[in-house]
Amino acid sequence: MGHIKLSQVSKRFGEVEVIPPLDLTIADGEFTVFVGPSGCGKSTLLRLIAGLEDVSAGHIEIDGADTTHVPPAKRGLAMVFQSYALYPHMSVKKNIAFPMRMAGVPLEEQERRISAAAEALNLTDYLDRRPGQLSGGQRQRVAIGRAIVREPQAFLFDEPLSNLDAALRVGMRMEIAELHKKLKTTMIYVTHDQVEAMTMADKIVVLRAGVIEQVGSPLELYHAPCNEFVAGFIGSPKMNLIKGAEAQKHGAATIGIRPEHVDVSASEGLWKATVGVAEHLGSDTFLHIHGVPGCDPLTVRVDGELPVKHGDEIFLTPQLEKLHRFDAQGLRVA
């Protein structure tokens, strides 16, 4: 079904090569997330798969067939855009029906699929409204509905949640993840938010400057980032990267330790340091620590009940088995 394979695909805009030749395989039914900082080429990569941009070189295969030069509509993909891209002059129902109308699906079949999608997405009461009369979250659902009814080989999502507020974002994240569990269709999802990537993905593709830095499951990337960039990008709060003498003790140019892998004590430990800002989230407290050689501030995650405040002196000890080591080029040292 929705097996997608990119071989030596590259893209240049004039003289600028935004994506150097890359290979990538996405298995059928997989939820793949492209993640990276803005400008890393993740959206361009998605648009190449969609056919909205021509590849400069290389081949794209969908379900075993070469679709490199097939127009977007014939690739059997559905896309959800960042701005939702709903047709403002059509009702919700007509928006959802549009792709089926283009494909010449019989009317009864259209009706059946529309009511099924509306049911699943809680849109039944809004079918006659125009997009302008809907909230952001509802518009997002219409856009998803328009994609579902096509019964595509794969769904493409281009930062679909970035126009929603924080609370809605968490909710929609769950809905999309559940949709995937239910439909079991291949999904490719582009985001710059590593939390979305971690929570939704079967497979994460980390991109930087058009180059794939690492591909793997969320926990693989968390436990064994292949370089400093991935280490710093995946995980929240970010991994602490320590350079200098402390790193050399471990035979590395840089060592990394996640905030949740540092033990805190009032009396003894490897580093003696001062608490700067303490962010109390209730369940956890994030401490920003000053005074650790080679890393300032160093972030530590502690239990929310721990009584610490600004200016306290504490002792820190990293859990050695959770330490990541990187060489001078930033690559992981096993």
């Binding site: 127009p71 014939k74 283009m102």
Partner: peptide, 8 residues
Amino acid sequence: EAARMDGA
């Protein structure tokens, strides 16, 4: 672009 993806 959405229209194009939708097969128009």
